[in-house]
Amino acid sequence: MTAVLTANGLGKRYGRRWALENCTLEIPAGQVVGLVGPNGAGKTTLMHLAVGLLTPTTGSIEVLGGRPAESPAQLGRVGFVAQETPVYESMSVADHLRFGDWLNPTWDQQVADRRIDQLGLDRSQKAGKLSGGQRAQLALTLAIAKRPELLILDEPVASLDPLARREFLQSLMEVVAEQQVSVVLSSHLVSDLERVCDYLVVLVASHVQLTGGIENLLAAHVRLTGPRSGLETLPPSLQIIEASHTDRQSTLIARVDEPILDPAWLVERINLEDLVLAYMRQIQPDASARPHLVEAHR
């Protein structure tokens, strides 16, 4: 399978602080990829590296087989919607479309027109007067009318109310169904991503903590509840992600490759949110750099 994004030892440092460190990733094509992590984990840095707004301090990143922003053609293949879905407040909807047409050689006016009609946006309206949801939809329209092969969206629904959030994700999924575009979108809320993503990247404290197809990840992880004394009966290949104990009982979230045979352990499936939270809570080698994360853990 071809990769839409490959990172090798990728790092970005600001002064003494690493915003992203030693990131090695391969994201397969044709997927909707959720990039999750707490605020400040490095999601935006990774996305800015992918679109060429930043250059790496260490390592390398390839997007659709090329260096980010190496040529106008490469720029045309990637659509990007930055955080807060920015638009030009004093420009009308129609101006935005003209601007998009002028800047993008691959601009598809039909796609843009159809979406604006579907959304029922007034073309003469100034973008500053649009609702948050409409602004986000306009930004998405601009990004997809250039017909990208990869769409990168940085927290597109973070500031939207639940209805606008749902509508935005509906639009996005329609685009995926119609245009065969790969998508990487970030969020700090797993619930946003549960329905729409089929691949997950969890970033915590500047490090990639977990990657994989969501179904495979969910199938490989379970919650185990059993006697505290029973830990040694678990298979040695078991990888404990999170453990909590009372004086008698232990509850584990673990990656398992073989069946748990000891009937003293109750084995349950976990949902995506449980899985992501368990990985986010794992104590980092440089946890001191993220005091609020450690606090949340207590």
Binding site: V32, R166, L169, Q170, M173, E174, A177, R195, D198
Partner: peptide, 15 residues
């Protein structure tokens, strides 16, 4: 149709 399901549920077409 896949498109109808996708737009009514906001889920991934692959699903």
């Amino acid at each position: 149709t896949v498109k109808d399901v996708v737009s009514s549920l906001a889920i991934n077409p692959n699903t």
